[in-house]
C-alpha cells in the first residue's frame, strides 16, 4: 500500500511537471525524483516480500493495509514538506525576496 501510494504520487507529480514544463517555476521536478526514487526502492522491498510470502502478499490483513496506507500518506506529506522547503529557499518567482524587501 505504501508502494502504491508513492507510485500514484509520483505519477500525479510527473503529469503536473509535464504540464508546467519547460518553465518549472514550481520546482515540481524535485517531487517527481523523490517519489520515483522511493517507489523504485519499495518495489525491491515488494519483490523480496513476494518471494517470501508468495500470493499471500496480495491479500494483506485490513489492519496492515490501513497502517501501510497511513505510512504512505505520511511519506507523501514528508515529500511535500521537503519540496516546499526547496521551493521557498530557491524562490524561483522571487516571492520570498519580495516579501522581505519593501520598494522605496
Amino acid at each position: 500500500m505504501t508502494l502504491l501510494t508513492t507510485v500514484f504520487a509520483a505519477i500525479i507529480c510527473t503529469i503536473i511537471w509535464y504540464r508546467g514544463a519547460p518553465k518549472s517555476e514550481m520546482k515540481v521536478g524535485h517531487l517527481c525524483w523523490m517519489f520515483w526514487g522511493a517507489s523504485l526502492m519499495w518495489f525491491i522491498d515488494a519483490i523480496i516480500e513476494y518471494g517470501e510470502l508468495g500470493a499471500e502478499y496480495f491479500t494483506p490483513a485490513p489492519v496492515d493495509m490501513l497502517n501501510d496506507f497511513y505510512l504512505g500518506l505520511s511519506v507523501v506529506a514528508l515529500g511535500l514538506i521537503i519540496w516546499l522547503v526547496i521551493l521557498l529557499v530557491k524562490d524561483p518567482k522571487g516571492v520570498v525576496k519580495a516579501a522581505l524587501f519593501v520598494k522605496k
Binding site: 508513492t6 521536478g29 524535485h30 525524483w33 523523490m34 517519489f35 520515483w36 526514487g37 522511493a38 517507489s39 523504485l40 526502492m41 519499495w42 511519506v75 514528508l78 515529500g79 521537503i82
Partner: peptide, 11 residues
C-alpha cells in the same frame, strides 16, 4: 543523485 537522495530520504 535526485533519485537516490529522494528515495533514501523517504525510506
Amino acid at each position: 543523485n535526485k533519485l537516490l537522495w529522494g528515495g533514501s530520504a523517504l525510506l
